[in-house]
C-alpha cells in the first residue's frame, strides 16, 4: 500500500462508526432488510399461488384465511404483495444499476478530460435534466413498449443524468489532488489513473446518491405500473395492484391499503439509509 492510500481505511472506519450510530438509518436498514428477505424467500414461503384465482373468494375482507384479503378475481393479496416485492425491489435496484453503469463512466470522462468533451457531455446532460424524471420515463416506456424490463430501462436512462453530473463534479475536485498528479508523473495511462486513483475516491457520494435514487426508482416503477406501462397482468407488482384497486375503492378498499403502504415503507427505508449515509460522509458532522 502506498502512502497516498493511507488515509482511506481510517476515513472508512470513521464513516461506518458514524453510520452505525445513526438510529434512523438503522431503522431504515431493518425495514429494507425485511422486504428484501420477503422478496427472496417468496418461493419457499407457505403462501398461496399469487396467480391462482378463486371464484368463491372474490373481494374478501382480511380474515384468518386471507390475512390481507383477496382481490377482484379471488387471488390472495398477501401472496401477491410478497411476490410484488420482488418486482418492485428488483426494478429499483436494476434501474439504478443501469443509471450508475451508464452515468458514472460518462461523468468520469467529462470530468477527467474537460474541454470540449466536457462541454458536449454537459450540454447533453442539461438537456436530459430539463425533461422531468417521470415524464421522460413515461415517454421512453411509451416508445419502448409497456413491460417491466422496458420500465426499468426507461427509469435507468431517466436517472442517468443525475449520476453524470455528480460523477463529473466529484472527478473535477479529485483530479487536481497531488496523488493524481503523482500518478500522471510516473507515466500511468488515463484509464489506469481513472480506475486506480479517481474512481475509488468518488465512490462514497455515488453510493449515497444511488441509495436515494433507489427510493425514487421504486416510486417511478410503481407509477409506471400504476399507469399500465410497467409490470403487465397477471404478474404482480405493487403499482399494478394499485392500478386495479382504484376501480374497487367502495367495494374492497383493502385492495388499495396494502400495496401503497408497502411502497411507502420501503421508500422511507431507503430514504433513511440514504440520509444516514449522507450524514456519515458529511465532514461538517464530525
Amino acid at each position: 500500500m502506498t502512502a497516498i492510500d493511507m488515509p482511506a481505511p481510517r476515513a472508512k472506519s470513521r464513516f461506518w462508526r458514524k453510520f452505525r450510530r445513526n438510529r434512523a438509518a438503522l431503522v431504515g436498514g431493518v425495514i429494507v432488510a425485511f422486504f428484501v428477505l420477503l422478496a427472496v424467500a417468496a418461493p419457499i414461503l407457505p403462501i398461496a399461488d399469487p396467480l391462482a384465482t378463486s371464484w368463491t373468494a372474490i373481494r374478501l375482507a382480511p380474515s384468518a384465511e386471507y390475512w390481507l384479503g383477496s382481490d377482484e378475481i379471488g387471488r390472495d393479496i398477501l401472496s401477491r404483495m410478497i411476490w410484488g416485492a420482488q418486482a418492485s425491489l428488483m426494478a429499483g435496484v436494476i434501474s439504478v444499476a443501469i443509471a450508475v453503469m451508464t452515468g458514472v463512466p460518462i461523468g468520469l470522462i467529462a470530468g477527467y478530460f474537460g474541454g470540449w468533451t466536457d462541454t458536449i457531455i454537459s450540454r447533453f446532460t442539461d438537456a436530459l435534466l430539463a425533461m422531468p424524471f417521470l415524464i421522460m420515463a413515461i415517454a421512453l416506456a411509451a416508445f419502448l413498449g409497456p413491460s417491466l424490463t422496458n420500465a426499468m430501462i426507461a427509469i435507468g436512462l431517466s436517472a442517468m443524468p443525475i449520476f453524470i453530473r455528480l460523477t463529473r463534479a466529484q472527478v473535477m475536485s479529485v483530479k487536481t489532488e497531488d496523488y493524481v498528479e503523482g500518478a500522471r508523473a510516473i507515466g500511468l495511462g488515463h484509464l489506469a489513473i481513472m480506475r486506480r486513483y479517481i474512481l475509488p475516491n468518488i465512490v462514497p457520494p455515488i453510493i449515497v446518491q444511488a441509495t436515494l435514487t433507489i427510493a425514487t426508482a421504486i416510486i417511478a416503477e410503481a407509477s409506471l405500473s400504476f399507469l399500465g406501462l410497467g409490470q403487465q397482468a397477471p404478474a404482480p407488482s405493487w403499482g399494478s395492484m394499485l392500478n386495479v384497486a382504484k376501480n374497487f375503492l367502495t367495494q374492497a378498499p383493502w385492495m388499495a391499503w396494502w400495496p401503497g403502504a408497502a411502497i411507502f415503507l420501503v421508500v422511507i427505508g431507503f430514504n433513511l439509509i440514504g440520509d444516514g449515509l449522507r450524514d456519515a460522509l458529511d465532514p461538517r458532522e464530525h
Partner: peptide, 22 residues
Amino acid sequence: ALSGLSIPNFWLGIMLILLVSV
C-alpha cells in the same frame, strides 16, 4: 417531511378519495 417525500402521491390520492369522498 420524510413521510411526505416517501409517500407515493397516487396512493395518497386514492386514500383521500376513499376517506374524504367515499
